[in-house]
Each structure stands twice: as C-alpha cells, then as structure tokens.
Design a protein around this nucleic acid. Sequence first.
DNA 1: TATTTTATTGCAACAAAGTTGCGTTAACCT
DNA 2: AGGTTAACGCAACTTTGTTGCAATAAAATA
Lengths: 126, 126
Amino acid sequence: MGIIRKTKAVKMLLNLFEPGLKAILAVDLIEQLKNEMNKTTVYRALDRLENEGIIHSFVGKNGLKWYAKCNHCTSHEHNDVHPHFQCTVCKKVTCLSTEIAIPKIKNYAIDSASVFLTGKCSDCNS
Amino acid sequence: MGIIRKTKAVKMLLNLFEPGLKAILAVDLIEQLKNEMNKTTVYRALDRLENEGIIHSFVGKNGLKWYAKCNHCTSHEHNDVHPHFQCTVCKKVTCLSTEIAIPKIKNYAIDSASVFLTGKCSDCNS
DNA sequence: TATTTTATTGCAACAAAGTTGCGTTAACCT
DNA sequence: AGGTTAACGCAACTTTGTTGCAATAAAATA
C-alpha cells in the first residue's frame, strides 16, 4: 500500500491537471477521456490519486464532484484548506491560495471547513 | 405567481422543519413521507418553498441536498448567509447563526459564499 | 354553495453520476 | 523473461433527482 502505479490513466490524468490551479469536473474528465478509457477507470484512478494526496476533491453547488491538484499534501494529511471559487461568467473553478479563518464557536470543536465562493474572476471582472 | 397553496405536502413539510435550525436531507424527507406522498411531490414542494424564501437548501460533502428553514428571507432575497455545520458524532446538520466574513480577493468580485463546517457539536463535545 | 380555474399530485418512465463484481490485462519486482 | 498483484473493461446496478401528462384538489368566482 502507498504505492501507486504509473499507469496510462494516472499519467493522462496528471497531464490534464498539469496547468495548475484549475479544478475539473469528474464528469468532464470522463467525457474528455472517453475514447482512451472507461469511466470506471477514471473514477478509480481519481480515488487513488486523492488517497495519495496528489489531488483533492470537493463538491460544487449542484452536487457534482470537482478535482484539482494539491499543493503540499501527503497521503497522511491534506494541508490544503483553501476556498474554491467559481466564476459565474466563465464558469471556471479554481483553488484560491487565500487562507480562510475557521470560525470559532463556543462549545463546538470545529475540525474542517470547506468554503465555496462564487462571483467574477479577475479575467471576467473588467 | 408568488402565491403558494397550503396543500397537504406543504403543511407536512413545514411541520417537519418546525423544531428549528436542524437541516434535513431531501432523501430522508422522501423516506419519512413515503406513505403519505410521492417523491416527486416532495421534491416539487421543496422547490416551491425554497423559491418563496421559506426554506433554503445546500449541498453536503457527499453531494446530497439538505433543506432547512430560513430565518429572515423573502422570495426576493436570501439574507441568510450562514455556515452549515455537521457533527461527526451525531451526524446532525444545523444552521449556525454566526456571521461569516466573506474574504476579499484583489480583482475578484465575490458575491456568494457557502461554508460547510464539520466537527463536534456542543452536545457531543463533552 | 356550486362552478370554474389553475396549481398541485401521482405515476411511470427517464436521466445522470457514481459504484460493484468479476474475469482479463498490464505494471512492477526479482 | 516470468510471476505477482494492482489496475482495467465491461455490463449491470444503485441512487438521486427530473419530466410529461392525465387526474385531482385548492382557491377564486359566481
């Protein structure tokens, strides 16, 4: 365990995430890769990459699953607690590097926060 | 438009939300009401109540839809920008009344934020 | 109250996202 | 190269949510 094979699926997926902070819908990955591999393969490869801390996932407003590359995570710890942002104009979803302040609430022990923002990105806001 | 009929479905749903801040899974509502009405009816009644600003919805970590009662919303405006919290012990999901600070990001125009927190609620944190 | 209007319902069929089991294939190790 | 085992493909399935349409029941009107 802990070892991940460098299979065709893994390589292709990592290529697609290469550009950087942009998140991709699982469904879109399946569509893009439909001539190369089965959707089951895509889902399973994504699972593995996520378990190894190479990518992370989150759920959008509509319940669909997004994936993006991690910055400084390991299989033990997902350090990457950052907000995700969707532009209402270009529809792109990105990881923001802004740290978010986890609110303190009396008598509650909060151990995770996920923040999803919408609005206009810098490209569309001009 | 703007008028919502006080049908059986609407009354029963509002009763279930009565207790207060607790959110309920759409799927659980359907299960609870399966002897009383069709799931289509539940989904459509929830839609109407949400459009009128009587309840609001959000998506949990797993992509499932939650509904909860609104505090001070109208059909025109959902003022209720509050975090949602799920206790990892008792699994309950509640609306927190804490205001959240929408982060400012240079060149971005942010117009909505949804925050989902997990941890231990006050009941389970003792 | 009886009648008309129109929103709401039930049903059955569908759609989309994601999962599972299992026999086959292909990475990796030696 | 050969063996071991993770990864794959396929088909079938599950779950959540949606749609069209004929039937029903609120509300409005007479």
